[in-house]
Design a protein around this nucleic acid. Structure first.
Lengths: 157, 157
DNA sequence: TGAAGAAAGACAGCCAGGGTGTCTATATTT
DNA sequence: AAATATAGACACCCTGGCTGTCTTTCTTCA
């Protein structure tokens, strides 16, 4: 059917949208009405060790200024705490708060539900296969992590 | 490997990004440095019959105001022309200009190249398979076309 | 050891692509 | 003819990016 590359791009985007929209809808329904995918990704990166704005920017492939903005809203909403770094006065250490971890936990649950539904529809083996291919294709793409504009997997939707 | 839904979402987004970024880069290299994926999609919708702002909005699942904005930049850059509709004075008829068609042609070429590269990497049959699954999954998603916020396949990245 | 360079982050301002609400003009329906 | 529906314009808001400039604080090296 789809024999054009543009169709393929739309399919991929559509897939992402389906998952992300459903997840956001679910999160709102469960009381987290001020979270967007980008916030979840940022918190995961912070929890995984990106504990300052510059590092977060690098991991998300955005500028440190953009990262700082994201951090600001995360902090304002209580998902992330900021404290001085005792070892380097230039840095401010980032911490995911319990509330933040709660959002991440719920988000994971929801995403897994959705993935489970997809697995039911096309079969778990097929889904695995698709994921493997995607990983190979996305991974094969040259990604510049050093500068903004590099197309790493961030959010933006 | 990836057993979580969040990973799947990221893979899909990454795939879209890979294609879209590469395509935009190529387009710039070929002299169209003021085009974004959303413009291409909008032109396709216009060429396919969405010849007024409200209809374009419906097809792209955005408000007519947003559609009007997109049309304005497309018009300003010479990719789309606007003229009065003789049959309905409320409407303004949209036309894709030759320059617009040229962008679409080049865009298609580029996307097809990229898809070809993917086909080489994982095999044409596998790519077809993946596309079929995606179509099934995205198609199965309930999409509300009547109002913005419905997660149809638009752009936004 | 002191000066140069690198890094973190703040601040100001810009842009695109979305959204809302309100308004006018024009059709359409009853 | 009146009521209703539709197209589009206008003004304004939000988010998530960007750039450039600046200060503060390390780090490194001559």
């Amino acid at each position: 059917m789809s024999r054009t590359g543009a169709d393929l791009a739309l399919l991929l985007l559509g897939g992402f949208r389906s998952l992300a929209d459903a997840a956001i809808g679910e999160l709102s329904a469960r009381g987290f009405d001020d979270v967007r995918p980008v916030h979840d990704f940022a918190m995961r990166a912070i929890a995984a060790g990106a504990d300052n704005a510059s590092e977060l920017g690098r991991r998300l492939s955005v500028t440190k200024q953009s990262a700082a903005k994201t951090i600001a809203v995360l902090q304002e909403r209580g998902y992330v705490a900021v404290e001085a770094d005792p070892r380097d006065a230039r840095r401010k250490r980032l911490l995911v708060t319990p509330l933040g971890f709660e959002v991440m936990r719920v988000g994971e649950e929801i995403f897994n539900d959705l993935r489970g539904r997809w697995a039911q529809q096309i079969g778990a083996a097929e889904l695995e296969r698709m994921e493997q291919h995607l990983r190979a294709l996305v991974g094969a793409q040259p990604i510049r992590f050093d500068r903004p504009g590099g197309s790493a997997v961030t959010e933006g939707v």
